[in-house]
């Protein structure tokens, strides 16, 4: 998967799960502050990303994630492993 494909999928999840408006989803957008996610939402999102990648994601792999761009990097790394 390319970064663009990951971004498209992630953007879809954010809109679908949390009704985040599409135009606020940019790589720089911060998940908690800008997109109004909370730590329990993050668990729901990780479940979706596990389905997308087909890999098990450990919670601490996502501990340091702050922005949409961070999530894309993390998923990209995971698929490259």
């Amino acid at each position: 998967m390319t970064r663009d494909e990951i971004f498209t999928a992630l953007s879809g999840y954010l809109q679908d799960l949390f009704e985040v408006p599409a135009d606020s989803i940019t790589p720089e957008a911060r998940l908690f502050e800008d997109l109004d996610l909370d730590s329990i939402d993050a668990v729901d999102l990780v479940v979706k990303l596990q389905d997308l990648t087909g890999r098990k994601i450990k919670p601490d792999q996502f501990k340091t994630v702050r922005t949409v761009g961070d999530v894309i990097d993390r998923v990209h790394d995971l698929l490259a492993e």
């Binding site: 679908d16 329990i40 729901d44």
Partner: peptide, 9 residues
Amino acid sequence: YRSRPLAAR
């Protein structure tokens, strides 16, 4: 609602 987070909101 279609997702749990959405139901919470």
